[in-house]
Design a protein around this nucleic acid. Structure first.
Lengths: 119, 119, 119, 119
DNA sequence: GTGGTCTAGACCACC
DNA sequence: GTGGTCTAGACCACA
C-alpha cells in the first residue's frame, strides 16, 4: 500500500478499511488484522494504525473485544453509506452546481456532462 | 471575514481575491490593498497575507511593482477560468460520477439532482 | 452472557458470581462450576476464569479444595455485604452528593430523585 | 499536578481543563496554554497533551485556530453540564438506587443519607 | 511561535 | 497473543 502526500497516513488507512467494508472484502463481525500485524505489513508505526482504528471506533464502524482485537460493526456499512450520502447531497451536489454556474458551462457541455452522469 | 478551519487561511485569502476578480469587483491592473492594510483589516498576521499574494503571483494572477504594490494581471480572469474549467472537467466531474455510482443513488434521486443542475 | 466493554471480563465474571451469592442462587459451600466448564459455557479463555476465581479467592469469598474445585465460603455473603456497605457509605454517598452540588440540581429535581430513592 | 494511577493521564488532563471551565477559571474564548508549554509544566510528553486536547476538540468543548492555539468554545460550559446531568440522571441515580436496595439499607440509615443529600 | 503527524521503542493490563 | 498508554524526539505546515 502506497500513501498519498496530501492526506495523513492514518486517515488513508481508515479510509482503506472503509473501502474494504463497502466492497464486502471484510464483513460485519470480521476481525481486522491486528495493530502490530497491520503496522508490519504496511511498514508503518503501530501508533499510526492505532490512530486509524481509534478513528473508526469513534464512528462506530468497528468495535473492540478486550485482548482479542477489532471487529467490523454489524451496522458498519449502513453507517458509512448514510454519512456519505448525506455529505454528497448537502455538500457535493451544491458545490457541483455552484461550479457549473461560476464557470459558465454552456448548454452543450452541460448536456455532455449529464450524459456521463446518466450512464 | 471569517475563516473555515478545514483550509489554511492564506489559501482562503487567495481564494477570496480570486472571487473578487471573477465577479469583477477588482479588474485587470487594479491595485490590491497593501499587505499591511489587508492584515489589519482581517486581523491576521502580515506573513499570512504575504503568502497568499505569493501564491497568486506564482500563478500569474497578480504581478508586482516594487515599492508600489500588487496588481491584477491582464490575463488574470482567463487564467483562472481556464484552470478551473480544466480542473472541473478532469477532476470534479469524474469524482461526482464516481460518487453517484458508489452511493447507489437511485433513478428518482438522480433525476432530482439533474433538475437542480439544469436550473 | 454478554460483556460490557468498560470493565475487564474477569471482573465481570467475578461480579457475576458475587451476584449469584447475594441472590442465593449459590450458597455457602456450594461448588462453583469448574474453570473449564465455565470457560466453555461463556466462550472465554480458561485463563480469564482462573483470574476471576483467584480474585474471589483473595477476598475470601470462595475457597479451594485441591483437585476438586472452588466452593463458596461460609462467610461469603456477609463478607461481601460488609465491604459493599462500607464502600457505599464512604465512597458512593459522598460522590453522589458531590455531583448533586456540582450539577446545580434544583429543588424540584432533587425531590423527584428522593422520591425514587424512598420507593 | 499529580496523576492518579487508575485513569490515563490524558483523560485526567482533559478532566482538569473541564474543571477549570466549570469553575470559571478559564472562560469562553480564552486560550488554553499551548501544547508544548503545558507539557513542560506538567512534566509530560507533548503527545499526551495533544491527545487530551483532541478529546476535548471532538466533544466541542474547545476549538482551534490554525497556528495560534486552542480556545474554549462559547458553549463549552453548557455542553459539559448537559452531558454530566444526563449521565447523572440516567446512570448514577439508577445505580445509586440499585445499591440501596441490594444492600438492604434500613430506614434509619436511609433517612441519614437523605439528610446529607438535602444539605 | 503554534498545532499535526509520525517513528521507535517501552511498559502495562488483559485474554 | 491482543490493545492502550506513554515517552523522546523528529519533521512539517501554518501564522
Amino acid at each position: 500500500m502506497e500513501f498519498k502526500e496530501q492526506q495523513s497516513i492514518f486517515q488513508q488507512i481508515a479510509e482503506h478499511v472503509i473501502q474494504q467494508i463497502l466492497t464486502d472484502e471484510i464483513k460485519a463481525n470480521d476481525k481486522l488484522s491486528s495493530v502490530r500485524e497491520t503496522a508490519g505489513k504496511l511498514g508503518v508505526n503501530p501508533n499510526t494504525i492505532m490512530r486509524a482504528y481509534t478513528e473508526l471506533l469513534n464512528n462506530n464502524i468497528i468495535y473492540n473485544k478486550r485482548g482479542i482485537g477489532y471487529f467490523v460493526s454489524e451496522s458498519a456499512k449502513t453507517t458509512i453509506l448514510n454519512k456519505r450520502k448525506k455529505d454528497f447531497l448537502t455538500k457535493d451536489v451544491p458545490m457541483f452546481i455552484g461550479k457549473i454556474k461560476m464557470l459558465n458551462i454552456n448548454k452543450q457541455e452541460l448536456e455532455n456532462i449529464i450524459k456521463l452522469i446518466k450512464k
